[in-house]
């Protein structure tokens, strides 16, 4: 497990669109917290504009989107909007039920990683931590 950090990673865990099943995102948020990260957690049903504003104001390193139905179809719009808002350094990950053909589409649109059911705590924490460090390096340029 990652030890306590002087500058905790900041992660936004959210759900876009219409679905409201949030067991997965709650469990992941708790894992990330227990790994020493600061997790901004939202209610489900966010729209892309809201997530961008939130990511900007909260200055997060990673945005995690949980999708159980088809809400991940909105994620390409999110990556595009983040880039337009000058937040291209923020890494976007998706977790949940994502069909294979959609996964390649998401990767092409700039999603860094897709977690599927069965991803372990270690995998999730390590991946998010690495992505967050990369995001911060890219933004701070040092």
């Amino acid at each position: 497990m990652i030890s306590r950090r002087a500058e905790p990673v900041r992660v936004l865990v959210t759900k876009l669109g219409l679905d409201g099943h949030d067991r997965g995102s709650r469990v992941v948020a708790a894992f990330l917290r227990d790994a020493g990260m600061e997790v901004i957690y939202t209610s489900p049903w966010q729209d892309v504009t809201a997530v961008v504003q939130l990511a900007l104001q909260e200055d997060v390193d990673v945005v995690g989107v949980s999708s159980l139905a088809t809400d991940h179809l909105l994620v390409p719009k999110l990556t595009e909007a983040l880039a337009q808002a000058g937040l291209g350094h923020i890494r976007v990950v998706v977790g949940g039920i994502v069909p294979d053909e959609d996964e390649s589409m998401l990767k092409r649109s700039g999603v860094s990683h897709v977690f599927h059911p069965g991803s372990t705590r270690e995998e999730i924490v390590a991946e998010v931590d690495a992505l967050a460090r990369a995001a911060r390096r890219e933004r701070d340029g040092d």
């Binding site: 669109g17 219409l18 679905d19 409201g20 729209d47 139905a69 088809t70 809400d71 179809l73 909105l74």
Partner: peptide
């Protein structure tokens, strides 16, 4: 559809999500 569950008509949500569930 999930849009109905959330209390919206079809013209109030992103069309890509309509009727998928």
């Amino acid at each position: 559809c999930n849009s109905v569950y959330r209390g919206y008509d079809a013209d109030e949500v992103d069309a890509v999500l309509l009727g998928t569930c």
